[in-house]
Design a protein around this nucleic acid. Structure first.
Lengths: 233, 233
DNA sequence: TAAACCAATCTGGTTAACCAATTTATTAAT
DNA sequence: ATTAATAAATTGGTTAACCAGATTGGTTTA
């Protein structure tokens, strides 16, 4: 059906075009929330793209909670109202790839909260996992090895202990980008990691003592250098 | 190949099983970051699942930044280290669906930050969009209509003005869940919406004046009822 | 008239064959 | 022996046919 050859980046464009056309369709046909979308076959023909492309986009919009696919039945518009659907799709089209600064900014925000919640809600099991991650980190650092991964896994253990699945998910989403950029820009060099051990221990201790205020304070200290890095570069 | 019949929820289980097996494979075969995964065909046969299932999982893990697929070449493990890969995959397996409380908690956290950043970074264009969203909200409320959607679109406009694409994305992800639950539990009844107009106007004004402190304060006021609701139910 | 049944149709999901770009292995030339 | 050229195999992506469950419309039955 399609004639042109597409590279990977162009495929992203195709997805955006489909989202755009889908939004127009919903607006034009005045489809209400809960209504059924035309079938995947219909859409692929109407938009002049492959059914796989349509399915990819549907899956993506399903992740954003805009669509809901039901086997052998159809794809339905989420019950959040037409205006919200249209507005959100416009926003999704406008989304940019996150830059490092954006990631760090978000990470600091999230972690100053998860560490508080972890101090309030942690179980003994959570504590054991954090201990394990912290020991792995210490071992690497004391061996003079790079320990960015172990560092982040400790922080992910805190996110888990916060018992907030949304923040936990978000932490997971930003982690790879953080690691990559840290290694790229050598944010954590050896002596910084060494200092990090005590800071991590302090955080762990505060969570163990179930002291949210202290936990947040220790995390703030831990992020001090990161703050500077984020707002200077 | 498969004999059993799968419902939608069981399909989720299959995806988890694939992720689990994939993690074991990476650990067992000692695959390093940057290494190539076995081909999709190979994996589907090895795991006893369809190639589509494998592709779905790869796409999901690609979203989390763990894998990277290159056409006509292969699927590669992200360059974030073996320990991080293994740890993250374990975390992803453990992820639960977000509950309402988790969503609200995260929303409040995000918005108290985006509103500050919006006050600092907003352009005139951002301001115009917020004004537009706010007017749509006011019109609905003054007509006595439900305006949950318009409410959220105003808040999404703030997220956009914050110029932090990660937080913007996260706000989009939680929005449908927020709307659904708001409508379900009637969080915003008529007189509450009426009061919301002034609160929204205050927030808008603070962002217009580029006063981050005031903006955050006004947002906090706006969330006051929400706070109570979140921590009581 | 309305409820119950049934077959034709439509649906998202799955499968397998196919495509073109890429990688690897083989051959040829220097 | 080394490099260049080339052919074979491998890859993710695409396509089209197929599957089983859901839906729909018409028909029959009480």
């Amino acid at each position: 059906m399609r004639v042109d050859i597409l590279t990977k980046s162009e495929n992203r464009e195709v997805q955006k075009q489909i989202i755009s056309k889908l939004r127009d369709l919903i607006n034009y046909k005045n489809l209400e929330p809960g209504d059924k979308l035309p079938s995947e076959r219909m859409l692929s023909e109407k938009f002049g793209v492959s059914r796989s492309n349509v399915r990819e986009v549907i899956q993506k919009l399903e992740f954003f909670g805009i669509l809901k696919s039901r086997p052998q039945s159809g794809t339905f518009i989420a019950d959040i109202g037409q205006i919200a659907i249209s507005g959100m799709m416009a926003d999704i089209l406008r989304l940019e790839d996150p830059d490092f600064k954006s990631l760090v900014e978000t990470r600091i925000l999230l972690e100053l909260k998860t560490v508080r919640l972890a101090a309030l809600r942690r179980t003994d099991e959570d504590l054991a996992k954090m201990r394990e991650a912290l020991d792995a980190y210490k071992k690497k650092v004391l061996n003079g090895q790079d320990a960015v991964q172990e560092d982040l896994l400790f922080h992910l253990a805190i996110a888990q202990a916060s018992k907030n699945s949304t923040m936990n998910t978000f932490m997971l989403i930003i982690t790879p980008g953080i690691i990559t950029n840290f290694e790229k820009y050598h944010v954590c060099d050896a002596n910084l990691s060494f200092q990090g051990i005590q800071e991590h221990e302090d955080i762990y201790e505060a969570i163990k003592e179930q002291d949210p205020k202290k936990a947040k304070e220790k995390m703030k200290t831990h992020f001090k250098i990161l703050y500077q890095y984020c707002y200077n570069v």
